[in-house]
């Protein structure tokens, strides 16, 4: 039994979600081979080779993998999975994994098991359904298990390996899609999905200006990533990649501070696995208090500066 794990990276570094996916692969058991497809992705491949538990790193380095287009990436993964006779193909359930992995499954004519949070055995997995309100235990009857892994369900794997790195011949450039532009948020803060502390703001902040004025100093003090509720994103306070929730990012930090967030079920689905949850809201009836470890009923416009000053 061997597992093919598709690394997520920016050519220079691995994305944090890859480390959690590796832990899920280790729980399934068997040799783990990591596929790094990119353009000038040698440094990312070297980083993958240093991870504990990796038996081999396969590198496909070509210009047409630079943008991680689903069509080209899936074709490569399918060819690699078939040539290597892998029993499992794993990737993170990130926006990238969700994009190309179902293509891989369809081309292999197998089901995909999406977003697993636990491994019961080599063919049985636990996954949330209905926005995390229910956990389903599912068993795959297919010869190849194509799986996406919810990063918050597994600890990050550590370093300590020295796996061999093998070059792989690139697959075809299908040429049916291309990236025209990217508007990515540039931030010195930790990645939202992997941060130890997350400060998240909701509609209660009233405006984008208030969001930044109040939450950035607090996040600076805590070394935190910034998040937001869907209401705050829809109102234009912050860009979409800040959104925490069922259809945004799923986070599980050590400390999650919800500021002016009422706690709609879709938001709770994205953060209720956090270790410690703090809620600050002026409405004592807000549902967020039902999941919070510490609740403070207060006007956030005075409480947040006070909290920032006290840290």
């Amino acid at each position: 039994m061997a597992i093919l794990l598709i690394a997520e990276h920016d050519n220079a570094r691995l994305k944090a979600a890859t480390l959690n996916t590796l832990t899920a692969a280790a729980k399934i058991g068997g040799d783990i081979h990591v596929l790094v497809a990119g353009s000038g992705c040698g440094p990312a491949a070297d980083a993958a080779a240093r991870l504990a538990g990796v038996a081999k790193v396969l590198v496909a380095d070509a210009a047409h993998y630079g943008d991680q287009l689903a069509e080209n990436l899936a074709a490569l993964v399918v060819a690699t999975a078939q040539a290597g006779g892998y029993s499992h193909v794993l990737a993170a359930a990130s926006s990238q994994g969700k994009n190309f992995m179902p293509r891989v499954a369809a081309l292999l004519d197998v089901a995909q098991v999406s977003d697993i949070v636990a491994v019961e055995s080599a063919d049985t997995f636990v996954r949330p359904i209905y926005a995390g309100n229910i956990l389903a235990t599912v068993k795959s009857a297919d010869a190849v298990k194509v799986i996406t892994v919810r990063p918050t369900g597994f600890d990050a794997a550590g370093e300590g390996g020295s796996a061999p790195v093998e070059a792989l011949a690139a697959g075809p450039d299908l040429g049916i899609s291309k990236v025209v532009s990217r508007e990515l948020t540039v931030s010195a803060r930790p990645e939202l999905g992997a941060a130890k502390v997350v400060v998240s703001g909701g509609r209660g902040l009233g405006s984008g200006e208030n969001y930044h004025k109040l939450l950035e100093p607090l996040a600076d003090k805590l070394g935190a990533a910034l998040g937001a509720s869907r209401a705050a994103v829809d109102a234009g306070f912050v860009p979409n990649d800040y959104q925490v929730g069922q259809t945004g990012k799923i986070v599980a930090p050590q400390l999650y501070i919800a500021v002016g967030i009422s706690g709609a079920i879709q938001h709770l689905a994205g953060m209720k696995e956090s270790k410690v949850i703090v809620a600050i809201n002026k409405d004592p009836e807000a549902p967020i208090f039902q999941v919070a470890d510490y609740g403070l009923v207060a006007d956030l416009f005075t409480a947040i500066p006070e909290l920032t000053a006290a840290l």
Binding site: T124, I134, A136, T137, V138, Q290, A292, L296
Partner: peptide, 21 residues
Amino acid sequence: LATLKVAEPAKRKAGAMVADV
């Protein structure tokens, strides 16, 4: 895929309210 079972996840218990910052 066969669904072997479905269950509600462990409920998170509400914690304590604090008086001030």
